[in-house]
Design a protein around this nucleic acid. Structure first.
Lengths: 295, 295
DNA sequence: GATGATTACGGACGCCGTAAGCATA
DNA sequence: TATGCTTACGGCGTCCGTAATCATC
């Protein structure tokens, strides 16, 4: 199971074409064909792709499901080794979920005031992408936000060992249009909303799976899905009646046409965690930022 | 990051010697030396091992931590593809935790009565090994047992997608010597035992980490560790005063000198789950066994 | 017939084994 | 001095690119 072959396999499956994958990877069409043939041969001759049209077979689909975690873990291992060998970096790249931005902004403001020469880059990403960015060394630090029972750590995808520290929690509110029948309530139990129409916003707020787990409903229909990381966009969708969503109340504070009703049951919080490589030494800037975030 | 090189790296690190690893893997000492050099070169020239004595460097230790999950996941991927391609197997290999044996034995008894020609192999393994055996295709089915909050699924190591089905639960008891001051109690809260001396029996019962999480104590001292899968051996150790352990009451039923006091708080059960490959078709025997276990 | 995957073939590179070199206990 | 890792070198296999072949839309 050569990881290089696995990578071309994923490229071919994604592109749906040998020649497109060849262009993408900088090989000739012939090389791709040979690589796929070699991969299939190394797996006992099991066909992984149908040709014309190019699509994964059943076995190929199984392999695809393993490919991404495998390649991710491999690059995480590489990053981890390089981190361990190299000294602390002279720059700081931080990936953060939208809901972590206020906290991060405050800390970064202090950092840049005290270390004006430091090269700081902030990027916004969904929760799982924050974890993968830190794991594969794209970022030195990450701020991941997710729904959690108060004591529990965040359930992050397995990308290898990471250091996670609590950076803060926010109470959870149901965000609904101001004219919604429940908008006037002082508090809500999620059980009351099991058959509500939710808005899936995996990047901006919590992914539907988390909401589902929190609500306790196995199948809840999300009438719309918003993949953007923008809280204002999400708020506008909720105000327009596209569905309900879970957010901290502050996230929609200045927004007209919306009501945020605190969730009283089950016990839930938005938990923000600071992520870093296990033995990563991110230098004085990283330490300072970590200290500022561990309020 | 070539997985073959990673495998030799782990072998060298484990053996503490290039030549021993060479014998183990069927290479010459020279080839091993070249492979390690190639691996180090592919990682930007970072030294992974000190020579004479041969031991992992800091970076090497980081890599070692990634190596096992990476290699495991790779063989799980391979097994998954082969399962998807091949038809249902004509035999049934089942790995089970010791605490799952009574349940399994009953089901297998029925199976072998109705399908006398079926080739059935049962093996005993610790919880995580059951999961890895199923993932890498060593066994068609697994029965994993672990401590869990009643509704929650088992926390298994990430070995890729597995199908898990609840096969049953057992109430948890604290097992202690009959002359222990608490032996007469009708029920116990684990908080009362936070400073007790526990017996770590990862293979036979629940690993110390689980007990620790259940008890809520970060650091509990286990005065002895029993790696065997044998419940009788564990019982004898408890009777001799080596420490307490958590078991279902039935596991020490016929045992003299022991008392089993039900755990009243926190809410805990021994949860038994049936594990199989996601799309594995284990034939009529597998289906029958699964049906028998899903009581 | 054109697009695109496969096969044939040759060159270059990589990998392993033999054997010599070299450092450390 | 002996054990054991490293380096030198040659053979063999692997991998890729060019080019011809073949299949499908």
């Amino acid at each position: 199971m050569d990881l290089a072959l696995l990578r071309t396999f994923t490229a071919v499956a994604r592109a749906g074409s040998f020649s497109a994958a060849a262009r993408e990877l900088g090989y000739t069409q012939s090389a791709i064909s040979q690589q796929i043939a070699a991969l299939e041969a190394s797996l006992g001759g099991v066909p992984l792709l149908t040709r014309r049209p190019v699509a994964p077979t059943g076995a190929g689909a199984r392999l695809l499901e393993h490919a991404e975690p495998l390649l991710l873990r491999a690059s995480a291992a590489r990053a981890d080794v390089l981190r361990a060998a190299g000294g602390p970096p002279d720059h700081l790249r931080v990936a953060a979920c939208p809901l972590a931005m206020p906290r991060l902004a405050a800390a970064v403001g202090t950092i840049t005031a005290t270390m004006p020469r430091l090269d700081v880059t902030i990027s916004v990403a969904a929760r799982d992408d924050v974890a993968t960015d830190v794991a594969r060394g794209t970022c030195e630090l990450g701020l991941a936000v997710g729904l959690a029972v108060p004591g529990d750590p965040l359930r992050l995808p397995d990308v290898g060992p990471l250091r996670a520290a609590l950076a803060g929690t926010d109470p959870v509110s149901v965000v609904l249009p101001a004219d919604h029948p429940l908008a006037g309530r002082a508090g809500l139990g999620l059980a009351d909303l099991a058959d509500a129409r939710w808005l899936d916003a995996p990047a901006a707020a919590a992914p539907a799976a988390d909401v589902r787990r929190a609500v306790g409903a196995e199948d809840l229909l999300h009438c719309a899905r918003y993949t953007g990381p923008d809280l204002a966009g999400l708020a506008a969708l909720v105000a327009a009646g596209a569905g309900l969503t879970l957010l901290p109340a502050w996230a929609v504070a200045g927004h007209g046409g919306l009501a945020a009703v605190p969730v009283t049951a089950p016990q839930l919080v938005f938990r923000t965690e600071l992520l870093a490589g296990v033995t990563a030494d991110n230098g004085p800037a990283g330490a300072a930022l970590a200290a500022l975030l561990a309020d």
